[in-house]
Simulated scan of single mutants.
Amino acid sequence: MTIIRGADADWRVLQEALADVRRSAPHLQTELLLGGSAEIAASVGAE
């Protein structure tokens, strides 16, 4: 699972969301990336 942070998104909120995912599904690979888009808060992707 990947979360791509938008330019104006609160980094701490996204880190907390990712930490929740890691606790509930520790087998998933997860990462939080800087995207820089001002049009979206965050984009979430999973395969």
Rank of each mutant, 00 (worst) to 15 (best):
R23D: 08
L32K: 11
A17T: 01
T30S: 05
G6D: 01
L14G: 09
D8L: 09
L32N: 08
G45R: 15
S37Q: 03
R5M: 13
H27C: 07
A19I: 12
D20M: 11
P26C: 10
R23P: 00
W11H: 09
L28Q: 05
R23W: 06
E31V: 08
S43K: 13
A41S: 08
G6R: 03
L28G: 06
R5L: 13
A46S: 07
A9L: 09
L32M: 11
T30V: 14
D10Y: 08
T2I: 12
I4V: 12
A46I: 12
L33F: 02
S37M: 05
A25T: 10
R5P: 02
V21R: 08
P26V: 13
R5K: 15
A19G: 12
A25W: 00
Q29P: 11
L14M: 10
A17I: 01
R12M: 05
S43H: 05
R5V: 02
V13E: 13
G35A: 05
T30Y: 04
S43R: 14
D20W: 04
A25I: 08
A17L: 03
G35S: 02
D8H: 14
A46P: 00
G45M: 11
H27R: 13
T2Q: 15
A46H: 05
P26L: 12
L18H: 08
G35V: 00
L28E: 06
L18Y: 03
G6I: 03
A7N: 07
L34Y: 03
R22S: 00
R22P: 01
G45T: 14
G6T: 06
L33W: 06
Q15Y: 06
S37F: 00
A19T: 15
L18R: 11
L33S: 06
G6V: 02
G35M: 04
W11T: 12
V44D: 07
A7L: 07
R22L: 04
D20K: 13
G6L: 01
Q15V: 14
V44T: 12
L28S: 02
A41K: 02
Q15L: 10
I3C: 04
L32E: 13
D8F: 14
A17H: 09
I3P: 04
M1C: 14
I40R: 01
W11D: 10
S24W: 05
G36D: 00
V13D: 09
S43D: 09
A38K: 10
